[in-house]
């Protein structure tokens, strides 16, 4: 995208946050538009498509299936294997399709975020592959991937202790805001992605970029958890839709 465009947006951000709204018109504690759909891939055991802001991500789950190579199989439980990958056209400028160091790290933290929610002990010696393909990136892809991966795992029929929900909070111009988009991510002072298990009350992803005093940081975490709880509802809706459960039927 053009450099000129980025500069204009940045100016707007600065101006608008003073009026307590953000460049895309959101309030500080407001999520981007979020859409989750399950069972979207015919060849995967479970799948989900998420649009979180302009992020567009497909996640496919395969397994539990036989682990290759066999020596990596754990005798007492299944191995969760998350892979994060971005399409070459997901960002500007085009990126190489070869996995980057960043992709590898995100795959690993996705694993840690999701693992505590999965009954891995039910499937010893097997592997559950979770493949996240970022088709378009707009900031906060790791949190969006975790949200979609959770729905895809449930779609695959894998028993879960909880639905993992994930969202970032951060600081822009001194103000704590929820669910940072691409521009905010780049221009802000700090970014704190969080994944949360609402039933178990556990934080399973926690990272931070930037400089923050402790109080502000913990406020960010609290706001991010608020966001996670909202996302949890949307994940539940996506799954209910899949099983044809409507709001009325439940009541």
């Amino acid at each position: 995208m053009s450099k000129a465009k980025i500069t204009t947006k940045k100016k707007t951000t600065t101006k608008k946050t003073k009026e307590k709204t953000r460049f895309d018109g959101r309030k500080a504690n407001e999520l981007r538009p979020l859409k989750i759909e399950s069972s979207v891939l015919p060849n995967a055991d479970g799948s989900a498509y998420i649009e979180m802001g302009r992020n567009k991500i497909l996640v496919g789950v395969f397994g539990p299936r036989e682990m290759h190579p066999r020596r990596f199989a754990k005798p007492n439980e299944a191995t969760l294997r998350c892979r994060y990958h971005m399409s070459p056209f997901s960002v500007d400028p085009r990126r190489s399709p070869a996995p980057s160091r960043r992709d590898t790290e995100i795959g690993m933290v996705m694993n840690w975020a999701i693992e505590p929610a999965v009954f891995l002990e039910k499937y010893p010696r097997s592997v559950i592959d979770v493949y996240a393909e970022v088709l378009e990136a707009d900031g906060g892809t790791r949190t969006a991937c975790i949200n979609a991966a959770t729905v895809a795992l449930v779609d695959a029929g894998i028993p879960m202790r909880d639905l993992v929900s994930s969202c970032a909070a951060g600081v822009i111009d001194g103000q704590i805001v929820l669910d940072l988009g691409d521009y905010e991510d780049k221009e802000g002072e700090a970014d704190v992605p969080v994944a949360y298990l609402p039933k178990l009350g556990k934080i399973t992803l926690l990272q931070m970029d930037g400089i923050l005093p402790i109080k502000v940081f913990t406020d960010c975490v609290d706001l991010a958890i608020d966001g996670c709880l909202q996302i949890n509802e949307i994940q539940r809706e996506a799954l209910k839709k899949k099983y044809g459960i409507s709001e009325e039927a439940e009541e």
Binding site: L41, N43, A44, S47, L58, V59, G60, F62, R65, R83, H85, S87, P88, P97, P99, D129, Y131, E133
Partner: peptide, 15 residues
């Protein structure tokens, strides 16, 4: 021109 077979496309496609 470049083509990627994503592993979500088929169980036999590997990353």
């Amino acid at each position: 021109c470049n083509a990627e077979f994503t592993p979500i496309a088929h169980p036999t496609f590997e990353p």
